[in-house]
Design a protein around this nucleic acid. Structure first.
Lengths: 237, 237
DNA sequence: CGCTAGATTGAACCAAATCAACCGTAGTGG
DNA sequence: CCACTACGGTTGATTTGGTTCAATCTAGCG
């Protein structure tokens, strides 16, 4: 749903986003105003295979990047949160690789790839940010293999919970089906593992789909003993 | 091992590499000559965590990108072949994410990230190639999740074999340990699955670690019925 | 208040991991 | 030149974790 145009100069998440560092004269080079959109939970932001005409900066909510198998199966290969960019492949003139779906109410800025690419050529500040974005996307994809697709169920779940946990050590957890699609497990296995975690008091339900986490114990379960592994949670996004 | 300097103008794989499209005046802007290196099978091209000062274009051989777990376990998150670029994260000024190891005799060009970044600003041709490289790296990483880390052992192995198979429908297969690290399986499971494939005549040994593949049957096993799934083998690299 | 979709539990089954033994080949040193 | 060794490959037996399938429960909703 269209939600007006963004005023980049007063953007409340400016420091986190693509246009961080940009100076006034840079904005003058953007031909069109930046439209904002709001998506309901479950709605598609863009489908895999679509010619990518734009990238999307997430301003609010969580976006899942889903790959749909030919047999209807689905695998989530990325989760984007505030400040992340979705559909970066559009900048290379390629169709979207995955389908981007809003997990809750999602607010985005839609930025035409044409505009970004034009500005890229003349603004070293945007250029720097773009390289950073490509890097983050690549790093996150590699981490996904290691953290979400490796090890046994309880280890993967612990890593996902830590990934979702904020500073309050609490996290929103979404449908069992989606958790399964993230971790490459069936929803039954996910449920059983969550139940085990609750019994072991690693997590405790606060309200519907929202729980408190014993991060210390989870980190141990995830195999992040002290330093050795970098925390995948460090989203520079 | 240092192996002299490359003559980019007469590069035999020029069409595939980063410097495709470049014109003579572009090369004038590269401060230093491009050194070539040769690595023995098993040697480290760069270790994870190292400050990335350069990227590497693979001229010959296969390079594995390995993540080493704190417990000594290892997971291969990418395989690079002729024309691919290793260590692209260096361009973002970041340390290398994985350890790059030569699987056989590997020849590379070492290109200082400083040079690439300087040229990036002034050559639209190189810039285009760089965006393409980031895209390919990201796409490959996402495909890795879907093709090499999803489904049961025989499906994953079939996909790996197809990934390795050249036009001759023959492929070099490396150590069982490495195959396991690619697919997230133990070497025993890999061996048993290979044995099954041989008995089912999906593959037949030609010589040591080299076999002929029934690609049609493998594609069916891999779940690539007709078109539906894009073939991960399409390396635009 | 009944309906429905997602969540949960249970039981049987199966694929992969694990553990252990053995084979085969490439070195290595006497 | 051959025995010895080492290491990767192979096979087998057993265990375990996860899937599958089916039944039941629950919360939200018209």
């Amino acid at each position: 749903m269209f939600d007006g145009y963004a005023n980049c100069h007063q953007c409340d998440i400016r420091d986190f986003v693509l246009f961080a560092e940009l100076i006034d004269s840079d904005f003058d080079l953007i031909a069109h105003p930046i439209p904002k959109y709001i998506y309901e939970a479950g709605s598609i932001i863009y489908p895999a295979g679509d010619a990518g005409q734009a990238i999307f900066t997430v301003r609010h909510g969580i976006v899942k990047l889903v790959y749909f198998g030919p047999d209807g199966s689905q695998r989530i290969v990325g989760l984007l949160r505030v400040g992340s960019v979705a559909g970066i492949e559009a900048l290379a003139g390629k169709p979207y690789e995955q389908t981007a779906i809003a997990m809750d109410e999602v607010h985005v800025c839609r930025i035409a790839s044409e505009d970004v690419n034009r500005l890229d050529l003349v603004s070293p500040r945007l250029h720097r940010q773009l390289v950073e974005r490509w890097y983050i996307s690549l790093r996150d994809a590699n981490n996904w293999i290691i953290y979400m697709s490796t090890g046994e169920a309880k280890v993967r779940l612990a890593r996902l919970l830590l990934y979702l946990t904020g500073i309050e050590n609490e996290c929103e957890l979404f449908s069992r089906e989606d958790i399964g699609a993230v971790l490459g497990l069936t929803s039954e296995t996910v449920i059983r593992t969550i139940t085990d975690f609750k019994e072991a008091r690693l997590i405790s339900k606060k309200k519907r789909n929202y729980c408190k986490c014993d991060t210390k114990a989870l980190r141990s379960m995830a195999g992040y003993e002290s330093r050795s592994i970098p925390d995948p949670n460090q989203h520079t996004s």
